[in-house]
């Protein structure tokens, strides 16, 4: 995909721009596909829940195709199913989607795209594609991971949504299979290598504290957005301390 042809920009000495070995590529693909399939499987729950909330099959499928953000979609049909107002459903869905826009600030720098490809990248900018992209040491691995994860989740999520809407939730409760824990474990594994970097480790610790303290008192979606503070505080405080030079700074 995007990592195929080396460009002069990518040929720098910085190790982050090094070419991918076959082993690198396999590791990224393994991560991308397992994250994509585990997340996609959840689509069957969404499809069943969407129809149960009173939406038609077409409306349920349209949400997975067009809205394409799991947390927002579950919240939206949850509110509609409970008899809530459409405006409340749209507001909560949008609030939960804010983090995708924040992810895009960084994935746009990793992907470095122009024109129409930004539209495609935007639609698949979600937790999973971002986590795999930022979890890679090499820039090209990040790009490959972003696209493969995003497209895999998109395809599986939509197929499973259709299946769930038409035949019901054949999987049963996804929690029975531990799929909710698989998602948290996958994100943990993707963030794991970052713990070697002192700033990233401090950011994670602060972010976890902020999210947990805010969760009982703030509306759903807000605690995670509030973790932006962790990145700002650590990012600005780290001034003058370079453990690992950012490739972006040099380019």
């Amino acid at each position: 995909m995007t990592s195929a042809a080396p460009t002069s920009h990518d040929d720098g000495e910085h190790p982050a721009y090094a070419a991918l070995t076959a082993g690198d590529r396999r590791a990224v693909l393994r991560q991308s596909l397992s994250v994509g399939i585990a997340t996609g499987a959840y689509g069957i729950s969404f499809g069943a829940l969407g129809v149960a909330s009173g939406l038609t099959t077409l409306q349920t499928v349209a949400l997975s195709l067009l809205l394409f953000s799991g947390g927002s979609q579950f919240a939206l049909v949850g509110i509609l199913g409970a008899g809530g107002a459409g405006s409340a459903a749209v507001a909560t869905s949008t609030l939960l989607g804010v983090r995708n826009g924040l992810y895009a600030l960084q994935t746009s720098r990793i992907l470095d795209l122009g024109g129409l490809r930004r539209l495609a990248a935007a639609q698949i900018t979600i937790d999973e594609s971002t986590a795999v992209a930022v979890g890679q040491e090499k820039r090209r691995a990040g790009r490959l991971g972003f696209w493969v994860t995003g497209v895999t989740v998109f395809v599986f999520w939509n197929l499973m949504t259709l299946a769930g809407a038409v035949v019901g939730n054949a999987l049963g409760d996804p929690q029975r299979w531990g799929l909710d824990a698989a998602a948290a474990a996958a994100f943990t594994a993707l963030l794991w290598p970052r713990l070697h970097n002192r700033d990233a480790a401090a950011t994670m610790a602060l972010a976890v504290a902020i999210a947990l303290l805010a969760s009982p008192v703030l509306p759903v979606g807000v605690p995670v957005i509030l973790t932006v503070l962790a990145a700002v505080v650590v990012g600005l405080a780290a001034h003058g301390r370079h453990e690992r030079v950012d490739p972006e700074v040099e380019s």
Partner: peptide
């Protein structure tokens, strides 16, 4: 460089917060 550092840490913060909510919420 300052904004670049903040942006690099941004998804790390959001995903760590997300894992916390997914684990305990």
């Amino acid at each position: 460089p300052r904004r670049s550092r903040v942006l690099t840490l941004l998804p790390v913060a959001l995903l760590a917060g997300l894992v916390a909510i997914q684990t305990f919420g």
